[in-house]
Every structure is written in structure tokens, then in C-alpha cells.
Amino acid sequence: MSMIKTEDICASFGKLDVLKHVSLTVEPREVVCIIGPSGAGKSTYLRTLNHLEHIKNGKIFIEDKLLDYYENGERKYKIPPKERAAELLEVGMVFQRFNLFPHKTVLQNVMIAPMNVKKKSEADARKKAIELLTRVGLADKMDAYPNKLSGGQQQRVAIARALAMEPKIMLFDEPTSALDPELVGEVLSVMKQLAEDGMTMIVVTHEMGFAREVADRVVFMYDGQIAEQGTPEQIFQNPQNERLQQFLKSVISQ
């Protein structure tokens, strides 16, 4: 069984084709890092998996269940909305700009979805939230509002908030790109711990060190396509694709 399988995904913004026939399969417990220059379609691809972006063509499976099937802009298959919502709950997402709820405290941010979507009791939701916030090292910030936290702390809350829904797959959309350099490490170490605990993860990132160290597989996207993929060793030490070679050169020279 694969966790996520996509076949032939195409998406466009108006006339601009952003994704061109992207196919990728992610196995359980696998950590896949997607790298590439900006505008390559990395974030868009990730967002199609969570239905934040529409696709024009292709199939999306989550846990082998077909959720979306389009051919040339035409919908070919419609899953009952309830089943689809249930399956999407298996997918958690962390955003570049955190997107915490500013009018809720840290603890409420983590409790709100389990209580309202999963109908958990307040006591259960609180217990789980405290456990998760402790795990990301923020047990002492539970009653603070997000605006009182640093970017790194906010992103760790966002991770705890996503984990509170007990997803099987976590999507990270450039989780450290909006952070000051000295705050990147604390977020990456939480993510590394998560990977070690066996979470299936897809991470769009510019942190090559993280990709090299944590990823099982690295995917290089260029111009809306997967240009090359392989183990970190293959990608970083023996890149074949010319664009990838250029990209790595420009990243490392920085």
C-alpha cells in the first residue's frame, strides 16, 4: 500500500502551466524532500495533495483510495464528499507562513480542530494538546497568543496543531523559509524527530542539509516536472540532470 500516489498531475494558473504530468508515489514511513528553484511548481504540487489547489488532469490516491480523477479539465470520478473529507483528515499540513489562528491561544490553536472536527471532548483534546506542545518544547507557552511568539515557536505550534488531528501523512510547505536563520534549527529538529518516529512526510524545502540528512528520497523539480529523483547520495553527490547540477552549484555557492 502506498500512502500517496499521484499520476500525471497537471495544474495551471490561467494560461500558465504550473504542473506538467507529475507522477510520484510515497510509501508509508517514507520522507520525501522536494527541492528545486522557485517557480518550479513544488508548493503547487504539495497543495494539490490537500485540495488547496485544483488539478486539471491526473489521479490522486491517498492510502490507495482514489480521491481525484481529472482528464483535460474534466472530472472523471466523484468520491462522496464525506469519504473525501475523512480521507483528507489523514493529511496534515504545515505552511510557510504558519497560519496560526491569531485570536486563539497556543493551546486553543491545537485543540480547536480535534474538538470541532473530530468531536473530541475538551478534556481529551486538552490532554493531547499538552502532550504535543510538550513534545515540540512549548509547554510553557500554552496560554500565550501567537503574536507573542517567535517565528520558530509559531511554526512548532503549527506542527503540533497539525499533529493533533493524528494524520498519517504530513506535508511541509517550505516550513523554514519565513524564519530568521537562527530559528531554523529548532523547527528542523522537531521535523527530524517526527521523521524518526516514522511519520510519512513530504517536505518542500530549501534546506539542503535537512534533505541530505533526513530524506529517504530527494525529488528535484524544474519547470513543473520532476527532473530527477533518487537517494540523497545520488542527488547530491552524483546528479545527472544538467539543471540539477546548476541548481546545486547555485545553492552551495551561497
Binding site: L52, N99, N116, K118
Partner: peptide, 26 residues
């Protein structure tokens, strides 16, 4: 911010929950 709608959706909230719990209070 559009991100508030996206975060709510990613957490599985439907339109009514998103409006009532997240958007209208803000």
C-alpha cells in the same frame, strides 16, 4: 488573510466551522 481559510481547510473544518470559529471572530 487567505492563509486562515487554508489552515482551517487543511485541519478538516468545513465552510460553516471555518466562518464561525476562525473568520468571523477575527
Amino acid at each position: 488573510d487567505k492563509g486562515q481559510f487554508e489552515a482551517s481547510k487543511a485541519l478538516g473544518m468545513n465552510y460553516g466551522q471555518t466562518m464561525k470559529l476562525i473568520i468571523l471572530p477575527q
